[in-house]
Amino acid sequence: MKRRNLILGGTALVALGACGGNSKFKRYYGPKVTYVVVNKGARNMYLLHHDKVLESYPIKLGFAPTGHKEIEGDGKTPEGIYWIDRRNPNSRFHLSIGISYPNERDRQRAEAMGKSPGGEIFIHGQRVPFRKDKDDWTWGCISVTNKEMEQIYAMVGDGTPIQINP
């Protein structure tokens, strides 16, 4: 009986150990990310601790990358200062963190045109894992690789300001 319990217990430990190795949820123990900066023209995103760059990532944008997002479906990525306001661990694009677009100014601008400003703008992973996205392809979001998104998801907390530059 003891031998059987020992074998079953050992098997359970091996099985549990195998499950934990490839989790998409990483831990981060470094300096707090206090600001995120996106430079659309250069296609780069920077995670900063005050004025020190902690990490930088190449990015993909909306399929119409020039200019500020004005209305739903325009394919543009917003420009301005927003906040990281939510996270989605079950995203269709691996993991995602939400950007607080639209703000009040964005809503007013779209309303003046008789349109919806849209929403659901995220920093997220890839649409097809293991295939490199060549061009801007999102509907206004900011995309990175899945591996990079795992780091960003761990490092950037809700409430972090994000500045998106042209």
Score class of each variant (00 low, 15 high):
residue 5 N to K: 12
residue 7 I to H: 02
residue 9 G to Y: 08
residue 9 G to W: 06
residue 9 G to D: 04
residue 12 A to E: 12
residue 13 L to G: 07
residue 14 V to H: 10
residue 15 A to V: 15
residue 17 G to F: 14
residue 19 C to N: 11
residue 19 C to I: 15
residue 20 G to T: 13
residue 20 G to I: 15
residue 20 G to Y: 13
residue 22 N to Q: 09
residue 24 K to E: 03
residue 24 K to V: 05
residue 25 F to D: 01
residue 30 G to L: 03
residue 31 P to V: 00
residue 33 V to L: 01
residue 33 V to I: 09
residue 34 T to F: 00
residue 34 T to R: 01
residue 35 Y to R: 14
residue 36 V to C: 00
residue 37 V to I: 02
residue 38 V to N: 03
residue 39 N to H: 11
residue 41 G to E: 14
residue 43 R to N: 14
residue 44 N to L: 09
residue 50 H to N: 01
residue 50 H to D: 04
residue 51 D to V: 05
residue 52 K to M: 10
residue 52 K to T: 07
residue 56 S to P: 03
residue 58 P to F: 04
residue 59 I to T: 06
residue 60 K to G: 08
residue 60 K to A: 09
residue 60 K to F: 08
residue 61 L to C: 12
residue 61 L to W: 12
residue 61 L to N: 13
residue 61 L to V: 14
residue 62 G to V: 13
residue 65 P to C: 14
residue 68 H to P: 02
residue 68 H to G: 05
residue 69 K to M: 12
residue 71 I to T: 12
residue 73 G to W: 04
residue 73 G to V: 06
residue 74 D to F: 01
residue 77 T to F: 13
residue 77 T to G: 11
residue 77 T to V: 13
residue 80 G to L: 07
residue 82 Y to T: 02
residue 83 W to C: 00
residue 83 W to T: 08
residue 85 D to Q: 00
residue 87 R to V: 00
residue 87 R to N: 01
residue 91 S to K: 01
residue 91 S to E: 02
residue 93 F to N: 10
residue 93 F to E: 10
residue 95 L to M: 10
residue 95 L to G: 05
residue 96 S to G: 13
residue 96 S to Y: 04
residue 99 I to K: 06
residue 102 P to N: 12
residue 102 P to M: 12
residue 103 N to W: 11
residue 103 N to P: 13
residue 104 E to R: 04
residue 105 R to I: 00
residue 105 R to G: 01
residue 106 D to C: 09
residue 107 R to A: 14
residue 107 R to I: 15
residue 108 Q to W: 02
residue 108 Q to C: 08
residue 110 A to R: 09
residue 112 A to D: 12
residue 113 M to C: 01
residue 118 G to H: 08
residue 119 G to K: 05
residue 120 E to V: 10
residue 121 I to T: 10
residue 121 I to N: 08
residue 125 G to K: 02
residue 126 Q to T: 11
residue 128 V to F: 10
residue 129 P to I: 08
residue 131 R to F: 06
residue 133 D to R: 11
residue 134 K to C: 08
residue 135 D to H: 11
residue 136 D to S: 06
residue 137 W to E: 05
residue 137 W to T: 12
residue 137 W to M: 13
residue 138 T to S: 15
residue 141 C to T: 07
residue 142 I to E: 05
residue 143 S to Y: 08
residue 144 V to C: 07
residue 146 N to Q: 06
residue 147 K to T: 15
residue 147 K to Q: 15
residue 149 M to I: 04
residue 150 E to S: 10
residue 151 Q to W: 01
residue 155 M to S: 05
residue 158 D to F: 02
residue 159 G to Q: 05
residue 160 T to Q: 02
residue 163 Q to T: 04
residue 163 Q to L: 09
residue 163 Q to P: 00
